[in-house]
Design a protein around this nucleic acid. Structure first.
Lengths: 113, 113
DNA sequence: GGCGCTGTATTATGGCACTGATGCACTATT
DNA sequence: AATAGTGCATCAGTGCCATAATACAGCGCC
């Protein structure tokens, strides 16, 4: 009955990415250890590691074995640019199409915020 | 990397819902048979049946056993209203938050279409 | 009745993603 | 050396998804 609409490691990935972009995890500083973040989020250390893995592959964090993982310089910028690209190219068109189908008026949505 | 790995039966569900809302599958008319849609979409008949199942449960289609499944009157309206509700309450806030994080201006994007 | 079209139920199987427990390798500090 | 903190690899368990192979049941038409 573990019904999560979204896998935990992806949620964590988004959480971490947001933290980096917002400067909560600053560049050059160390990320929370897998065990620490796992305890904080009530997840498994391995699941957190899997989330971190994504950032290693992209070269956004550097691993010092036995020490910790550090945020690479310029990671926030890269991350934001990349996410912006993905959002505009892949997600936004779908959102627009869906709004059109549902007959939602853009002006209304903007007024409500 | 982003698997567009959404379950097939959910993709089909969205596809059918969109078709009903757009009037492609008109009210009172018959939906494609499970076998027909399966062949057309390159899916398994059982998977299509699973997608159709969702609409039966919601009373949006009526089953005439041995004949076919028919779109109930008012289904398009109900479907659109329900989807609109979900979109506004659950998805739109997240989209807004994400756009804010990425430094994207909603007015600009909405104006461009 | 016979044929062909509908949807439905059953059972089994393979694949794959997610999660978890345990232990190991490495490093810094004492 | 001892200790405690890192990340990482291995193995296993679980659940969902999709498919397959049938078989069954209702309806319309000839």
């Amino acid at each position: 009955m573990k019904n999560q609409s979204k896998p935990v490691y992806l949620k964590l990935r988004d959480l971490i990415a947001a933290a980096i972009i917002d400067g909560q995890y600053k560049e050059g500083e160390m990320l929370p250890s897998v065990r620490a973040l796992a305890a904080e989020q009530g997840a498994n250390p391995l699941t957190v590691a899997k989330a971190y893995q994504q950032f290693q592959n992209d070269g956004l964090v550097e691993v010092q074995r036995g020490v910790g993982m550090y945020v690479v310089k310029g990671a926030a910028q890269i991350l934001r640019d990349r996410d912006r690209e993905i959002f505009l190219k892949e997600e936004w068109p779908e959102i627009r199409a869906r709004m059109a189908r549902l007959g939602l008026a853009p002006e209304k949505l903007l007024a409500e915020t």
